[in-house]
Nucleic acid binder design. Structure first.
Lengths: 203, 203, 203, 203
DNA sequence: CATGAATGAGGCTTCATTCAT
DNA sequence: CATGAATGAAGCCTCATTCAT
């Protein structure tokens, strides 16, 4: 009985994952706001109606994907910590930029959710703690790097700065994916440098 | 004859301006992807069809607005230079963040054009020189601040970093416009600080 | 063995009743065409699939409810007869209008089934005898009131006329439920009056 | 200039009529709530989008059709008056029932709009004066027939009663259209009779 | 050249019904 | 026999763009 219920739960989770994956896959091909329910359904080999059994609406699905990304980044940082008992500012910057280059959708979403006026507070509630989680890690990195004053604020600043590298150069016309990757990585390193030589006057 | 032609030209320019202004005005009220051609036409007191005499499509119009913004920022920097014979990194950061706070649409567009896959190279051609112009100024600022090595790259990094402050915090749920302005300004100053205490090892 | 079968039968009947009641309850809250299978299932604490074990489809369920209503009206008339050994035309009209005011769904259904093109003859077969039953009573009322010629036809006419009061004024905009009740009741009395002062030429 | 404008106006009116006619035609084939925008568009040889240039939404279209019907009935009464300088209760009843038999959609709509809970007050505002118009005529008929007290109320009652004949028997299963017409006409005459021998006690 | 009506593909979402468990 | 997840057709409506006037 309980086993059966667990099985169902598992199946449900699997299918949810299926939809999520399908959506993300489509996102890598086009602007995420142009991906339609029907497309996602088709890609996930599921009927459009089914999607609404797992997500109340498209926005909910998008938020889910967004949160997945954030969590993923957090875990990447954790891995780094796990390996070296610390994570330098530089490493964080590299990780983050590498991730953004691989997952431009994530950046689009961030832009969409942050700049758009549509985020229903309910979704905000879901986003908040997960972002906080990420910033906790980031703050710790900065503290370990010696930036102890205003460390939260600096975490925000660093995160923002790194993200900014993408918006400006992500798809710079005429630049290949690889070139973009190299360029943004260079920028990230400069930023990291500015932030870790943090012995600056106001540090 | 030539006078008449000039008049026509003038009229054409005026109407083009009219449309542009109408669009920008609407953009300050809502997410730019939600502004419809009809709305713009109505606001500009022009028919939808007319818009297509001046812009091949919506994207072209958007690019125009985008470029207007970039030029505007350039001129703001020029003003600052005009007043003080220089422009500190801090001042640039403040100007830029203030501008972004007042013109979130611009940021949305940057995000849209940079991240989307839609920028036809033709538009890229228009964007390129104007961006170059902006970066020339920025590079100069950095050089004057003593960051002489990799100054172009650092200009990119600084610009990106500042822009990044917006995407992350622009509409952070529950934060008022004024609070956002203050927060992003704080972040901008931190970034400015990191970039101008440029006596960093790799500076 | 037979007892077990009877038990099963009983259980089945109970559940059927449960569904019916749930549906009726929902109908009193909204337009019956807006009630969904899922809602009914939820209210009846039963799965959607189960409903289809008891009713081939929604229409069948609706017919059942409809017939329940007709039977109910018949029994109300019987009560009146039981109490006073007769039922004046006026009393019938009052009973009927009162009932309709309390059960607008019934009226909606009548309208739906009678005007729509959907009534499969099979359902017609179920409806027929129960309606006949009602008309028998009504005819008797009219006969007792002295309308002996064409009494069946007049029963139809009276029934129709009374029902008509509802469609025209049921939800007259801006009128409260109580006002509607009063108004339709007034109309019903006028009709009753016309029908019982049946000393009309062609009576 | 003005002529051109008038022409446009005329064309607009024509197309509006086209859509209306298409919709009504479809209504004669099925339950009006089952008629879809796409169908109407197809029948009117117009694109779906066009319909929304003429009607804000389906409800508006439905209300328009409904009002057309009511106006039509009013004009039928006027014709009768024009011919005979009066219109007997009987004639009104015949006219009304004949009309309903020919236009069952109208009856469905009445039922829908009156019983449903959806009529936005804006539409109510459009419906009100046109119904009032009809009742003015009806009241006059009754007054001429000698029913001077409560004539408005009686107008309501008569109208309702006649309408009621339809709901009960319109599509009585197994009855042909012609049989229905005959039966409802008989009922209408009985009702007319009851109402015009109005020398009843309370007349 | 300006107009604005028409287009029609496409958007999201709902829901009666089926069917494997 | 009950379940409820899945279905997928169908619903209404929007809107960038075109084109006859």
């Amino acid at each position: 009985m309980s086993a059966l219920k667990a099985l169902r739960e598992k199946e449900r989770e699997t299918r949810r994952e299926l939809i999520l994956t399908a959506a993300q896959q489509l996102f890598s091909d086009k602007d995420f706001r142009q991906v339609t329910v029907r497309e996602i359904a088709k890609t996930a080999q599921v009927s459009p109606g089914t999607i609404y059994r797992y997500y109340r609406n498209m926005d909910d699905l998008f938020v889910d994907i967004f949160l997945n990304h954030v969590s993923h980044i957090s875990s990447l940082i954790d891995e780094e910590f796990g390996r070296h008992a610390q994570c330098s500012v530089l490493r964080f910057c590299e990780i983050q930029v590498a991730y953004l280059n691989e997952n431009m959708t994530f950046y689009q979403m961030m832009s969409h959710f942050m700049l758009g006026r549509r985020l229903p507070s309910e979704n905000a509630t879901r986003i908040d703690p997960i972002m906080r989680d990420l910033f906790d890690r980031l703050e710790q990195i900065l503290r370990l790097a010696g930036l102890v004053t205003d460390s939260r604020l600096k975490a925000h600043a660093l995160f923002s700065a790194i993200n900014g590298t993408m918006i400006s150069y992500a798809r710079y016309p005429g630049r290949s994916r690889e070139e973009t990757r190299r360029h943004t990585m260079r920028l990230a390193r400069i930023i990291a440098d500015q932030f870790s030589s943090g012995q600056s006057v106001c540090g």
